[in-house]
Every structure is written in structure tokens, then in C-alpha cells.
């Protein structure tokens, strides 16, 4: 594998399914030696709040606990634990600066190790990434 293999993910939704897809892909890619950059924007930003507990979307919301239990049964950790694992493996997390403002969030509400970026700065990173995926 070449050193230049990088993955850019954009996460624009804050529901459990989108949250897990982003940490699954992020941890796996980092585990495969890729450099991983994840940009959280709009409702995706909620996932970077400390102790975030995302719910399934829409009517499935009430089934979240049951679903989480099922995931635990197949060895899958909670979103918070997976996000920690991602950071341990070197996954870089970014919060969209405009979304921070729009959602009235401040840096101290976010998990540690998150950089706050604008669109241009993230696109500057993404332009050098071989794989770019949008989760939303």
C-alpha cells in the first residue's frame, strides 16, 4: 500500500445508523493503514458531543436500545466506544464551524481531539484523499 492512501468521510446525519457506518468505515480504514479524516456537519455534528447516544431514525427511534443490545451481542461496541477506538487508531475528527454556530455548540461540548474547520479547509484535505465518501 502506498503512503498516500487517505479516506475522507463527510457525516451529515446524527442518527445511530449513520453514526455507526462512519465509525465502522473509519476504524476499519485506519486499521488497514489508511489516513482517515472525518468531517461532521449539520446533524452529524451532534455525534461529536461528549457522551453522544445517537438514536435510530424516525419511528425506529424507540427500537434503538434493542438494536444496540443486538449489536453488543455480535461484539460491536457502543458508538462512544467506537469513536474512542477510532481516535486511538489515529482517525482525525473535524467539526464544521458553520454547524457549530448554527446549532449553538461550543468547543467544550465536544469530545477531546476534535479540530474545528470550515468547508475550504476540509476540501483541501479531501482533495488529497483517494477515497471520499458521504454518509448522510
Amino acid at each position: 500500500m502506498s503512503d498516500s492512501e487517505k479516506l475522507a468521510l463527510v457525516v451529515s446525519e446524527g442518527s445511530y445508523d449513520k453514526a455507526m457506518a462512519s465509525v465502522f468505515l473509519g476504524t476499519t480504514a485506519a486499521g488497514m493503514g489508511m489516513e482517515v479524516h472525518v468531517f461532521f456537519t449539520f446533524f452529524g455534528l451532534k455525534l461529536l458531543k461528549k457522551n453522544a447516544r445517537p438514536k435510530l431514525p424516525g419511528l425506529y427511534r424507540i427500537a434503538t436500545g434493542m438494536f444496540e443490545k443486538k449489536m453488543k451481542g455480535v461484539g460491536v461496541d457502543s458508538f462512544g466506544e467506537m469513536l474512542e477506538t477510532a481516535q486511538e487508531l489515529g482517525v482525525k475528527l473535524y467539526a464544521c464551524s458553520t454547524s457549530m454556530e448554527a446549532m449553538g455548540m461550543s468547543r467544550d461540548q465536544l469530545v477531546d481531539g476534535v479540530d474545528i474547520l470550515g468547508a475550504a479547509a476540509f476540501l483541501n484535505i479531501a482533495a488529497d484523499c483517494k477515497v471520499q465518501l458521504f454518509i448522510g
Partner: peptide, 17 residues
């Protein structure tokens, strides 16, 4: 022993180990 684990957990465990 990743029996009972679903994707991507075997790979996450493998990476960590």
C-alpha cells in the same frame, strides 16, 4: 477468538492485537 463477532469487529480486534 472472534467467533460471534460481526464486521468490522474482527478487523478492529485484529488491528489492536
Amino acid at each position: 477468538d472472534a467467533q460471534g463477532m460481526m464486521c468490522p469487529m474482527p478487523i478492529v480486534q485484529l488491528t489492536k492485537k
